[in-house]
Computed example of a mutant assay.
Amino acid sequence: MKNKGLLLAITSVALLLFAGCSDNTAQLESGNQQEESSQSMSQEKSSAQSSSHTTASTKNSSDTANKQISLQEAIAVYRKEKPNTDITGIEINSRMNQLIYEIEGMDANKEYKYYISETGEVQTKDEKTLDEDDRGEDERNKEKLSFENLLPLDKINAIAKKEVDGNIVEWSLERELSKTLWEVKVEKNGKQTDISIDAQSGNVLEIDEDD
């Protein structure tokens, strides 16, 4: 009977030890799974952030590379270079599939011409001394463009296309007498048409079709 009781006691202790080991193993496996899951989620999050950062960087780089400045921004580039001058003429045309802003200005003694790319880079610039008859504040006031209440270029384009529904290839902003006007060149069916538009009112002043 003693031996039988001792055997039962040893068996009970062994079962308790086995049960304790099983619980610890399960917890360890559970802990490993949670850690692996956490690491996996962390890696996925890190990967997603990295991917997002790469995409954002690529997009920003692409946006910078493809950025095309507006007329107002081109004017700002010129004015930063020559703040004490008046703008007397602007021409916009396409060269090798890129827009070029040609901006002319003057002060009391010199006239200036800046060529600005569609990305805002000053490509070339030129200046020369005015003739004696063209110097002075009075002459400068006669030549300078008025930017007050200037219509947006997209509205000028719409007005021109209403007259001739073709491809606009060139724009010139100039002054005639007391008016600031746009000369818009439109191509259609192999012909070019020049349309003069009041830059402030939008009134069509003249239409000249090339023969």
Rank of each mutant, 00 (worst) to 15 (best):
A19S: 15
Y114W: 06
T193R: 03
Q34E: 10
E36W: 06
I92S: 03
Q27D: 02
A160D: 06
D194K: 01
E111C: 01
V186N: 00
A76K: 14
I90L: 15
T119K: 00
E73S: 09
L130W: 04
S40Y: 09
K155M: 14
P152Q: 14
Q72K: 12
E132D: 06
T85V: 00
E148C: 05
N97I: 08
M96W: 13
G31W: 05
K185I: 05
K155I: 07
S70F: 11
K191E: 06
T64I: 14
S30M: 07
E170H: 08
E29K: 07
V184E: 14
S62Q: 15
L153T: 04
A199H: 02
N109I: 00
N97M: 14
I92N: 00
V77G: 09
T54D: 09
S57D: 13
D131M: 05
S61L: 11
Q43V: 09
R175M: 00
V13M: 07
N167E: 13
N149D: 11
V169A: 14
K185D: 10
A199Y: 01
G136S: 03
G31D: 07
E187L: 06
N189W: 03
F18T: 14
G31A: 12
T64G: 10
N203T: 10
D208W: 07
K110I: 00
T129L: 07
T129A: 06
